[in-house]
Design a protein around this nucleic acid. Structure first.
Lengths: 114, 114
DNA sequence: TCTATTATATAGACAATCGATATATCAGGA
DNA sequence: TCCTGATATATCGATTGTCTATATAATAGA
C-alpha cells in the first residue's frame, strides 16, 4: 500500500540517521536500502534526500567523504554519523516511540480511560 | 515529552476523524479531548484545527451544525462524520498501521533481514 | 542509437503546521 | 473596578518538508 506522503514528514531524518548507525553510506544507497528495509513502503525521492543530507551535514550530525572511484560514473559522497548525530538519533527514536504510542492510544483507547 | 511538530504532519486528519467516530464534537472540545487521550502528547493548535475542519467539510467527510447556546459566549460548531468520512477514517487508519510498521521495521530490523 | 541505471544536485511548487492576531463573553482575583 | 484567563471560532503570513522536474555524466544493454 502506498502511504500518504505527508505521513513521512518528520520521520525522514530519523530513518536516515538510523541507516548510518551501522556504518557509512552514500545517498543513492540509502534510498535503495530504505526501500528494501521497509518492504517498499518508503520510496524516498532524490530531491528529498540530497538537500536533507546537506542540512544534516551543516548541523554537524553527519560528516561527508567524497570518493571518486574510477569505476563509478560520478563520485560518491559517503556519509557517517558524528557523536552529535548519534545523540540526535537516540532522541529522535525516543520521540518517535512517544508519538507512535500516543497515536495508537487515540486509535485504540477510544472513549474510556481509567 | 514534547514531540517534534513535523511528526504530527499527516496524522492530524486521522486523529480528528477518529475523535468523531463515537459522535459529534465541536472544535475546541476536540483540542482538549485529543490532549487528554494522548496524555498531553498532542496539543493541537487552534490555527491548525479550524482550517482543517473547513477542509474536511468541503471534502464531504464531515457535516457541521451550528448551535448558538445561550450559555456559551460564542456559538459552537458541532461536527459529525459522514459515510464518506467513515470510509476515509478506515483508509487512513490502515495507512497509519502500514506506515508505523515500516518505521518500526527500519528501527528494529537493522542490518539483517531473512 | 536510444533508453535505463547509477549518482548527485538544485529550483520551484505544494501541503501542513505554527504563531500571531482578531472577536466576544464570562468568571475570578487583585 | 480592572485585568487576566478560559471558552470558542476564525484568518493571515511564515516556516518547514516533500515532491516533480530538470541538469549533468558515465556505462550497460536492447
Amino acid at each position: 500500500m502506498a502511504i500518504d506522503n505527508s505521513l513521512l514528514s518528520g520521520s525522514t531524518t530519523l530513518l536516515v540517521l538510523k541507516l548510518l548507525e551501522d556504518g557509512e553510506m552514500y545517498g543513492y544507497q540509502m534510498i535503495e536500502e530504505l526501500r528494501r528495509r521497509s518492504d517498499r513502503t518508503f520510496e524516498l525521492k532524490a530531491g528529498t534526500l540530497y538537500p536533507l543530507l546537506h542540512t544534516l551535514e551543516q548541523q554537524g550530525w553527519v560528516t561527508a567523504r567524497e570518493q571518486s572511484g574510477s569505476d563509478t560514473a560520478r563520485p560518491r559522497r559517503y556519509y557517517a554519523l558524528t557523536e552529535a548525530g548519534r545523540g540526535q538519533l537516540a532522541q529522535k527514536e525516543a520521540e518517535w516511540r512517544t508519538y507512535a504510542a500516543a497515536v495508537t492510544q487515540v486509535l485504540e483507547g477510544g472513549a474510556c480511560l481509567a
